[in-house]
């Protein structure tokens, strides 16, 4: 066999152990490696390229880590050919996985400090491993808060996990939706409305923000207005990715290859780039 492109462009086979519906168009997939040991351990915020036979690949954040004592979980929204094919897979189907790629949420650097997690919509998926990690090492962190906004009550992700977290005494968890019928009984409004009532020390806190870019911009602005430092506020950016190894050119934002130096960035690194429209 002759030489080809780097080995890492060949996926590893993973069997779909379980698939369940989270919301109308969002599914979670639990995957287990077939045969060999599986891919290297990932860090919160990283992503894998998931491959559906005959259709292609999509970059999907890891939303559940095997290190936490469970299968590899990816939460996928069915918006295009590949993601639809992934969401239509059935237990036993073999998918391709390669990774993990990208930068991760700096959970180590946040030790000893307050942690504020701000999530919008499906942005909660790449942040769930942060919550899992922080809860598993709860005494290493000071105050921990999660505020989460979704479109409607039916679009709230990981509802049972949210309720579990919310019932703890050592976590501040608040959820809101953009609109609701009367049965909701919870907050209605934008996620940034929840920030004023989050107690944290702006001089010694780390914030992790993930969601649609508009939502992230306003949430970051509110955090900075309150006094947080742009070096301590981290965002996860979305760009078109095809190779995930910084060679296909699609994910560029200015000089950054988002699949390599990102998708998680401290806000101070990307704020000048985000400020230029359509960059």
């Amino acid at each position: 066999m002759g030489p080809g492109v780097a080995e890492r462009l060949v996926p590893s086979p993973y069997a779909l152990a379980e698939i369940w519906r989270e919301t109308a168009d969002v599914w979670s997939l639990a995957l287990e490696p077939r045969g060999r040991d599986g891919l290297p351990a990932a860090a919160p915020g990283q992503f894998n390229m998931l491959y559906a036979f005959g259709v292609g690949e999509a970059p999907i954040s890891i939303s559940g880590m095997p290190e936490g004592g469970g299968p590899l979980v990816h939460t996928v929204r069915a918006v295009g050919n590949v993601t639809r094919a992934l969401c239509e897979a059935r237990p036993g189907d073999v998918l391709g996985v390669r990774g993990p790629y990208g930068s991760s949420w700096p959970v180590e650097a946040a030790r000893g400090r307050d942690v504020v997690v701000v999530a919008g919509g499906i942005g909660l998926a790449p942040l769930r491993p942060v919550l899992t990690h922080v809860i598993a090492h709860r005494d290493e962190y000071r105050r921990v808060a999660l505020v989460y906004g979704a479109r409607t009550p039916a679009d709230v992700l990981y509802r049972s996990a949210l309720e579990r977290w919310r019932s703890r005494f050592d976590l501040h968890v608040d959820v809101t939706v953009d609109s609701a019928g009367r049965g909701w009984g919870g907050n209605v409004g934008h996620v940034t409305d929840l920030l004023p009532s989050v107690p944290f020390d702006v001089a010694d806190a780390v914030a992790f923000v993930c969601g649609p870019e508009i939502m992230m911009r306003f949430a970051v602005r509110d955090l900075l207005d309150r006094g947080a430092s742009p070096a301590d506020v981290h965002v996860s950016l979305e760009r078109n990715m095809k190779c995930a190894v910084g060679l296909c050119g699609h994910c560029q934002l200015g000089a950054e290859f988002v699949c390599r130096s990102g998708p998680v960035y401290p806000y101070e690194r990307v704020s000048p780039l985000l400020g230029v429209r359509e960059l």
């Binding site: 066999m1 080809g4 080995e7 086979p13 069997a15 073999v94 391709g96």
Partner: peptide
Amino acid sequence: QLNIAEARRAGGVAFDQPPVEV
């Protein structure tokens, strides 16, 4: 054009690097 990965389905799915003549 360059083939970079091959997936074969027979029961499960196996992935391989396609042979390339340089």
